[in-house]
Structure formats: C-alpha cells, structure tokens
Design a protein around this nucleic acid. Structure first.
Lengths: 179, 179
DNA sequence: TCAGAATCATCAAAGGTTTGATCATTTGGG
DNA sequence: CCCAAATGATCAAACCTTTGATGATTCTGA
C-alpha cells in the first residue's frame, strides 16, 4: 500500500467504508472488494445500534450490554444451566463465569448446583433480576423500534432473511465458532 | 413474563432468536416483535463473523480485533491524528489511547506530537506495522470472501444497501453516538 | 488582551473477553 | 468394575472498553 493519494480530510465513521473499499480495490487488485464492503458495513451498523442501546438504555440502569444479554436470556427461557445460557447469549463459559460474579453480587441472578450433574450450574433470576429486565426491556424495545423505522416493513424482513442466510452459510464457510 | 411454557431443550445460538421473538410476542402484546427480531439477528450475524475473523485470522497473528481495526485504518488512510483514527475505527479516544499502548509496545505504530497543535497526536505505522497488516489483511479478506459466498451478488448489494439505510436512519432515531 | 470555554489526550476504576490451565465430576470402553 | 477421556465451571494473565476526571493547549468573545 503506497500513499500516493491523500485521504479526504473529512474522513468519518460513515464515509470510511467507501474510502477504504475504493482504495483497497485500486491498490490491491486481488482483493474481494464486495466482501470487504459487506463485512465493514455489517460491523459499522451493528456497532452503532449496540452503542446506542447500551449507552442510552442499559448503562443508565446499571447494566452492561453483556449483562443485559444474560438477564434477557434467563427472562425469556427461564432457569437453565450455565452452559446453555452461555450458548444462547453468545459468550464463552469462561466469560459467562466472570460476568455472573457481577450479576450475582448485584443480586440479579442466583447460582445453584444442578441436581442431576454436580459439575453443572443452574441459573435463575431473582426478583430484582425480573425487575431489572421488565423496565429495561421496554426501553430497549422502544429504541429498537426507532431504529427499525428507518426501513420499510418488507425491507426489515429482507434484511433479516439476508442475515439469516449469511449465518446459515457459516457452515460452508468453515467458520470458527465459540467453544 | 410467566413461565408456562418450557423452553425447547435444544435452545441454541441460532434458534434463540425465533424462540425469543415468539415468546415475547405472546406474552408482551405491546412489543415490537419485528424490530426485536431485526436487532437480535443483526447482532448474532455480526458476532459470528467477528468471532471467526478474530479467532481464526488475527489472534493467531498476535493482533486483537480492535488492534487490527486501528492498524487497518492507518494502513488505508495513512498517518493521521489520533482523534481521526478513533473516529474511523469506531472507538472512543480513551479506548484508543489505551490500545495504542499495546500497539506501540509491540512496535507496530508510532505516536508523535502534531506540529500544528501540541495537544494532538500524530499516528503512523512502523515497518513492522506494515508487515503485520500486509499478511493479515489477505487472510482477513479471504475469510470475508468465504462468508460473502453465502449470498448471491445482488443479495450482497441489497444487504449493504439495507444496512446503510439503517445507519442513515440513526439521525431520525435520535441515536446516541460515541463521543 | 486575556480570562473562560472548548478541545485533545490520558488516567483511574470497574467490568467484560480471550486463551490456556486446573479441578471436580461424569461417562464410556475394555 | 474401573481407569482414561470428556465435560462443566473456574482461575489467571493480558487486554480492551466505559464513564468521568484531570492537565495541557488552543480558541473566542468581550
């Protein structure tokens, strides 16, 4: 990569994708520019949505984004083993273990040994945990609505379909998954 | 949220979105289920892609995902101020400041005071920094290609269009941005 | 001109994540 | 039956992120 073209002085979070893809295309003929654009855009969009939800909804209520995900999973699926909680909330068992220390200290969840397997942990929400998710989720969903309004209903469905197809392709792509 | 229905015993990272949306819809009539599904799906897809890229490409080469983003930005846009680097790589100036300690210690970037403004910092890649990104990006882009193959070319373009439209709507949604 | 406001980077404290190791328990094959 | 392998949780070290505060520099308007 040579630097024979000055970057635009007003490079921004938004415009960087376009700039980066064009420059890479120009200087690295072998690059798959469309794949690069797709992954960059996917990351930017998600990053914006998550930052908004976490900073405007959850942090002010004393929850982090990962903390919310765990409470949310326990709320919807009910008491379950730690292994399952980690799986469906998208984190490793080690990360969940560390996160549970905070949630337990704050009185939001309870850790208990599982009956049938004394290695396993059974997780459940406390009353305070329910309280936290009840108010939090309404505010969370209102912000989700605000974001979703940017798209027409059929566009939202199409976006979901494409993302699901992308995820389904992970097998073919031989992607590495969290263990 | 009452627990009158047992969760499927095979709840997984994939199937949880469907399960969660259906259950929320059934028990919270006021929920915007489509918005919920969109945000959940967006997060899962991104999380899978990022985990794969980071764990299969960057960590084995000694870079974290945020570290890669910074090196990548400096590679494409050339030397620039820390403020701009933080902006286009999607992190706060405080987070960048901490991250730069690692990158500088590893000899990948150089921090210098800016000429025109002695508060500002000028960042640039070292030779080692170039080396790291040259090899790393090819592998990165190959994995991006593998992911992108899950979609048809026109589907990839449509996905990018929808994500961009979503981001453009953040203004209307009065989203909170990273300062 | 010159004080107050804005801006840039960094620090500090608290928290979450990764990989790899360890320990207890359970499972499975000989 | 029993020991080796697999499994579930936790620990440890290194790292990145957030919010809010601090110190240094630059800008601005009276």
């Amino acid at each position: 990569m040579t630097h024979n073209t000055a970057p635009p002085s007003d490079l921004t979070f938004w415009s960087f994708v376009d700039y980066a893809v064009r420059k890479a295309e120009r200087e690295l003929p072998s690059v798959d520019a469309e794949a690069m654009r797709m992954v960059l855009t996917l990351n930017r969009a998600t990053s914006m949505v998550v930052y908004d939800l976490e900073s405007s909804v959850h942090r002010p209520r004393g929850l982090t984004w990962p903390g919310f995900r765990v409470i949310f999973a326990l709320w919807l699926a009910g008491p379950m083993e730690a292994k399952t909680t980690a799986e469906i909330s998208g984190m490793s068992r080690a990360a969940l273990s560390a996160l549970l220390n905070t949630l337990e200290r704050d009185g939001l969840i309870v850790r208990e040994r599982a009956e049938h397997d004394r290695r396993a942990l059974q997780l459940s929400l406390t009353e305070a945990g329910y309280g936290a998710i009840l108010g939090g989720f309404r505010a969370h969903n209102r912000r989700e609505s605000a974001w979703a309004e940017a798209l027409e209903p059929d566009e939202r469905r199409e976006l979901v379909r494409l993302l699901n197809k992308l995820m389904a392709g992970s097998t073919t792509a031989r992607a590495k998954f969290r263990s």
